Simulated assay, not measured.
Amino acid sequence: MYSKQSGKALFPFLITLLVILSVYLYLPSSHGEQSNSNDVATQVVAHTVSPQENTVMIEAIGSARANQAIYIKSAQSDYVTNIYFEDGDLVSKGQQLVQLQNQQEQYSVKELNINLKEEKRQLSRLTELSRTQSTAKSLLEEQLSRVDATQAQLESAKTKLSEMLITAPFSGLLGKREISVGAYVNNDTIITTLDDISIIKVDFKLPEKYLSQLNVGMKVHTQNDAYPDQTFTGKVTHISSRIDSVTRSVEVTASFANKSGLLRPGMLLNTALELSSNQALMVPEKAVIPLQDKHYVYQIQDGVANRIEVHVASRNNGWVAIDKGLSDGEQVITEGIIKIRSGSKVSVEG
């Protein structure tokens, strides 16, 4: 007889059988869908390889200084009678800046001019006498000495008089005025500063391993946080003859034409020196897959992605120069790499 207990025992068996049957029926359908999915091309973004300018740059931090920079001081000591400039004036070479009290120097020059005129008159008289009197010849020599001495005294007095007027030794930008009219100044008194900022020089250091590749005239680009969207271009004008024994670096100086006046002495500048420049096949860095000590890219041929090995020559600002493995006009995948493998069908977006 068929019992309820035997029916209950059979029930789990029937459930298991149904599950196995369902899986069996599902598998062919699943395989069919996977097969179909392999026929669908994966959407990717690609880059067409072409020769571009490949510039190798060395970056460093530099400090700016003026082409010429001095403290304006007086060679003479006296009271200030006039000041002809304001803070921050742009001045030309020879422009008057400060006048010192100079009446005494003017009197000295006037007196010496009169003395020299008289000494020359005496010289003329003795010259005439020396033609007929032998004794006048010795007096003539003495008078010549007096004329020369007076002439020297006059030149010295004129120099001192000229130094009572302080002028700009070169064109540039003045700093803050440190004196006032009536002040007593001497050769220790700072009147103001003068900077020639028509050219800005930037000093920076590079590792000594680059020394053999450095040359005067190399291009240098620089930026400052004050002008984040602007790049200034100059050239190397000096390479130090010594290597710093502590940092093992060489100091390089680059000069920048500063017609706009935007660069100022003391600025901290981000510099980049162009070490070399050539034409190379360039691809975005994100297209290159590093595996151990080798590099690969996914190359597209007839709608199929193939992983190929390439040789990286250099890297610069998110771009990689390839010297082996690729040719001009080929396409490499830059986005969608994780969704494909070698042999996958792909479709390039855009």
Rank of each mutant, 00 (worst) to 15 (best):
E142M: 13
T135E: 14
I197L: 02
L211Y: 05
K117H: 05
I114Y: 01
P169Q: 01
T127S: 14
T150E: 15
S212Y: 04
N187R: 06
L214V: 06
E208Y: 01
T150L: 08
S124P: 08
S162H: 13
K158S: 10
I190D: 05
R146H: 11
R121V: 11
G182L: 04
L129K: 12
E119W: 01
T192Y: 07
L129Y: 05
K158G: 06
E111Y: 12
G172L: 03
E142G: 14
A152P: 06
K209N: 10
K158M: 07
T189W: 00
L214F: 01
S212L: 05
L139M: 15
E105I: 08
D203W: 01
L161H: 06
N186P: 00
L173H: 05
N187M: 10
T127R: 10
S156C: 11
T150M: 07
V185G: 02
D188F: 09
S130F: 08
Q143E: 08
K137D: 12
Q104Y: 12
A168F: 03
V185I: 09
F170R: 08
L123S: 15
K201P: 01
Q133M: 09
A149K: 14
E141I: 14
K120P: 08
D188L: 06
L140R: 03
S108G: 08
N115I: 07
E119A: 13
E163C: 11
T159G: 07
V109S: 09
R146G: 12
A149R: 13
Y184K: 05
D203N: 02
Y210Q: 04
T192P: 05
L194D: 02
P169I: 01
S108V: 12
R125F: 13
S124G: 14
R146L: 14
E155D: 13
Y184F: 08
L211C: 02
N113L: 05
S145Y: 15
N115F: 09
I114R: 04
E163L: 15
S180F: 12
A152V: 08
A183H: 07
S171N: 00
S130Q: 10
K137H: 10
K117E: 00
L214S: 03
R121D: 12
D195I: 04
Q153N: 14
I199T: 12
E118D: 14
G182R: 06
D195W: 00
L154H: 03
V185S: 04
R131T: 15
A157C: 01
K137Q: 14
Y184T: 02
L174K: 06
D196C: 08
S212E: 10
I199L: 02
V147E: 04
A136Q: 07
K110E: 15
K110P: 00
L206F: 05
E155K: 11
S156M: 13
L161E: 12
E118F: 00
I199W: 02
E178M: 13
S156Q: 11
K110W: 10
Q104T: 12
S138R: 11
I114V: 12
G175A: 01
R177K: 15
I200L: 03
